[in-house]
């Protein structure tokens, strides 16, 4: 009897801890998001009222009608897409080389890539600014793309390198044996099999570029304002509801991309294919 009493107690404690965990999760993750959503749709919402005074969509209109805010959305997408393309062109071949070839300095390069993330970003950007002034890259589109590249290079090299390395060599050899040249082998065997890993890297890079604020502000301002840099002035100069709407817009790509990852990487034939080695 006593034993069952103690096991009941353990069960209760477990349930209480679970409840606390769920409440904490709701408070700190769902809570702010909810606050943001309500704020974006409220006419006005002032302390100590529990609910807004009224509901409206006018703040969305205000953001989309404001030419400066709208152009920052377009610019953010332009930077993210450009960064993604340039980063793929540079990093994917490098990733393949890291995974398949043994060359002098291979380890040094691999570790060296981390160096971009090892130092405080602001310090790095100040040093970078000095260089950019000398090269006339300040306030240029290319300069901003370069800064964004710095943030994506680690994802775009390490994750695809691991994905390429996980493609068994014998699968490539089998393709060569079947009559395929090196390029054909890469595009018909290696790349499709490494695709899930590459997709993850692409998504992380897109988001990293989309959310980059410090470097973009330092190099791009006052010519280029992206969504994250625009947030700085938004918080100070616009009604709070506009900032809330902007935050929601800023998080749309993340949510959409995460949905895509869930559908195409976690399930389906790509993941299934990885079961046989």
């Amino acid at each position: 009897m006593r034993r069952s009493a103690s096991s009941v107690l353990v069960g209760v404690v477990r349930q209480v801890l679970m409840a606390i965990f769920i409440v904490a999760l709701l408070t700190f993750i769902v809570g702010p998001l909810l606050w943001l959503a309500i704020r974006a749709l409220a006419t006005s919402w002032t302390y100590p009222k529990l609910l807004p005074d009224g509901w409206t969509l006018q703040w969305f209109g205000k953001v989309l009608d404001d030419p400066q805010l709208f152009s920052s959305i377009r610019l953010s997408i332009a930077f993210a897409v450009t960064t993604l393309i340039v980063s793929s062109v540079i990093c994917l071949p490098a990733a393949y080389a890291f995974s398949r070839f043994e060359f002098p300095g291979r380890r040094v390069f691999l570790i060296g890539l981390f160096a971009t993330n090892a130092f405080p970003k602001t310090g790095l950007y100040v040093a970078l600014a000095a260089l950019f002034y000398a090269l006339n890259l300040m306030s240029t589109f290319g300069g901003v793309v370069l800064v964004h590249l710095l943030g994506t290079i680690v994802f775009m090299t390490w994750i695809p390198a691991a994905a390429f390395a996980s493609v068994p060599r014998s699968l490539e050899e089998a393709a060569r044996d079947a009559g395929a040249g090196r390029f054909r082998v890469f595009f018909s065997i290696t790349l499709p099999m490494a695709l899930p890993g590459i997709l993850v890297a692409l998504i992380m890079s897109f988001l990293a570029s989309f959310d980059e604020a410090q470097g973009t502000y330092l190099v791009g301002a006052p010519t280029f304002y992206t969504m994250p840099t625009e947030m700085y002035s938004l918080v100070l100069n616009y009604p709070r509801q506009v900032a809330a709407v902007f935050s929601i817009l800023l998080s749309v790509p993340s949510v959409v991309l995460l949905m895509l990852v869930r559908k195409h990487v976690m399930g389906g034939q790509l993941a299934e294919g990885f079961q046989i080695r």
Binding site: P168, A175, D177, M193, I276
Partner: peptide
């Protein structure tokens, strides 16, 4: 003009 059957079969999973 050779064709090989690999030890782990090396079939392409995709």
């Amino acid at each position: 003009p050779t064709a090989m059957v690999f030890q782990n079969y090396a079939l392409w999973p995709h």
